[in-house]
Computed example of a mutant assay.
Amino acid sequence: MSEHPPARRRRTGLAAAVGLTALLGIYVWLVALRAVQLVATGRAVGIVLGVALLVAPLLVLGLIVREWLLALDVQRMADTLATAGQLPVDDLPRSASGRVDRAAAREAFGPYRDQVQADPGDWRGWYLLGFAYDAAGDRSRARAALRTASRLHRGKGAPGDLP
């Protein structure tokens, strides 16, 4: 067993994300290449299909860039909190398979929600709330809270309502 499993898990996750992004990049490149070929036919149907196929890869690339920027900012926020000794300890009870006990996660959720309600302009509260949502199994609210934390961390915009 490794002495530092979380660091190894993080590297493995990063490698998987980079690998999948590279594969998706190749796919997007091939679709864009085919789209240009369709437009070059000069036929109306080819042009329409080619333009449609060009829009899709651009949209996909935009979404990929958005997710990577969020991931990088979330890591910067985690580093800042870790340096300040403010990262919470994940001591939630888990099942034999390693899944977080949802009832315990929901119970631990309250203080984070209260922290955000007390100071909605503090990115730290939103960051911690995002991970509390994640532990409770609500991934869409977790992402929304992390997006709000990122926006506040970068100094862009006002806080949103609780997701």
Rank of each mutant, 00 (worst) to 15 (best):
H4C: 02
P5Q: 03
P5D: 04
A7I: 07
R8G: 01
R8P: 00
R9E: 13
R9A: 13
R11N: 01
T12I: 03
T12N: 07
T12F: 04
T12H: 10
G13Q: 02
G13L: 03
G13A: 03
A15H: 05
A15N: 08
V18A: 11
V18I: 15
V18L: 12
G19I: 00
G19Y: 00
T21P: 00
A22G: 13
A22I: 13
L24C: 12
G25A: 09
I26Q: 08
I26W: 14
Y27Q: 15
V28L: 12
V28M: 14
L30E: 12
A32K: 03
A32S: 15
L33Y: 10
L33N: 03
L33I: 01
Q37A: 11
Q37S: 09
L38W: 09
V39P: 02
A40E: 13
G42M: 00
G42E: 00
G42C: 00
A44D: 12
V45T: 08
V48R: 11
V48K: 07
V48P: 00
V48G: 00
G50N: 06
P57K: 09
L58F: 09
L59M: 11
L59T: 13
G62I: 09
L63I: 08
I64L: 13
V65E: 10
W68N: 07
W68F: 09
L69S: 04
L70K: 12
Q75G: 01
R76Q: 09
D79H: 14
D79R: 15
D79C: 01
D79E: 12
T83F: 14
A84S: 08
A84F: 07
Q86P: 00
Q86F: 09
Q86R: 13
Q86I: 02
L87W: 07
P88L: 10
L92P: 00
L92W: 03
R94T: 07
S95H: 15
A96Q: 11
S97E: 14
G98V: 02
R99M: 06
D101F: 01
A103R: 12
A104K: 04
A104G: 05
E107S: 11
E107I: 09
E107L: 13
F109Y: 12
F109P: 04
F109E: 10
F109H: 08
P111S: 10
P111C: 04
P111H: 04
Q115F: 09
Q115H: 15
A118S: 11
D119H: 10
G121W: 07
D122V: 01
R124H: 14
G125D: 05
W126H: 10
W126S: 01
Y127M: 05
L128Q: 15
L129Q: 11
F131W: 13
F131M: 02
A132H: 04
Y133R: 07
D134H: 15
A135H: 15
A136I: 02
D138F: 09
D138L: 04
S140G: 05
S140M: 11
R141Y: 05
A142W: 07
R147I: 06
R147A: 11
T148H: 05
T148V: 10
A149T: 06
G155V: 05
G157S: 05
G157C: 07
P159Q: 14
P159G: 11
G160E: 09
D161K: 15
